[in-house]
Simulated scan of single mutants.
Amino acid sequence: MTPLTVPADETLGLLRARNRLREVESEATMQPYRNLAGNSGVEAFDILRDGIKVRFVSGGTYLYDYRVPGRTRVEEMKQLARAGRGLSTYIAKFGAEYAEKID
């Protein structure tokens, strides 16, 4: 059989569509960060079974999971996200490593 080839411009279009779908899905499940201190760089978050997605006010959504930066850090980030205080500071100190930049 001859392998199916897709022109580069169609492949790029499919990738853009897939990425946009991921953005919409991510936005739909994210909870606003309560920001009790009033000065957080975190806008919203989504707690996952083995990770947390964090969207920042300055732009960009990042996935932190049990692989990177690790289970202990992720569980602490989940607690801070639920509390609405300290998540941005914690990430600045300990969460510079992330598993994936989503957007």
Rank of each mutant, 00 (worst) to 15 (best):
A28N: 08
D65N: 15
I91K: 06
S88K: 01
E76F: 05
L87K: 02
K101I: 03
L14Q: 15
Q31N: 12
A92G: 15
T72L: 09
S88T: 05
N39T: 10
A8H: 11
E100T: 11
E100I: 09
K101Y: 07
E76V: 12
L4F: 13
R18Q: 13
P7W: 09
A99P: 00
E97K: 11
T2R: 14
A28H: 02
A92M: 08
T11I: 14
V6E: 08
G13C: 06
G41H: 09
D50Q: 14
M77G: 03
P32H: 12
G51P: 04
Y66T: 02
S26R: 15
A28G: 04
D103C: 11
Q79G: 13
R82S: 12
F56N: 05
V54C: 06
G86V: 10
E75S: 08
S40W: 00
A81Y: 00
R82P: 01
D103S: 10
V24K: 10
Q31D: 12
L21S: 12
P3W: 10
K78P: 04
V24L: 15
K78Q: 13
T11A: 13
G86N: 01
G51N: 03
G86D: 01
P3M: 11
D103Y: 13
A81C: 04
G13N: 14
S26V: 10
R16G: 03
I52N: 01
D9E: 15
A17L: 14
I91T: 06
L4T: 15
Y62S: 02
L14E: 14
G38W: 05
R82E: 14
R55C: 09
G38M: 07
E43T: 06
E23C: 08
Q79K: 14
G60H: 05
E27K: 12
E23H: 10
D9N: 13
G41E: 07
R16M: 10
L36W: 07
M1W: 09
P7L: 09
R34W: 07
A99F: 05
R71S: 01
R82C: 09
S40L: 02
K101D: 00
E27M: 10
G59H: 03
K93H: 14
P69N: 09
V24D: 08
L12A: 15
D65H: 09
T61K: 00
E25W: 03
R16A: 15
I47H: 04
A8L: 13
L14S: 09
V57E: 12
L15T: 08
F45N: 01
R49V: 00
D50F: 07
E100Q: 12
G41Q: 13
L80F: 04
Y33K: 01
L15V: 13
I52F: 00
E100D: 11
E43Q: 15
F45M: 06
G13E: 13
R18W: 03
D65Y: 03
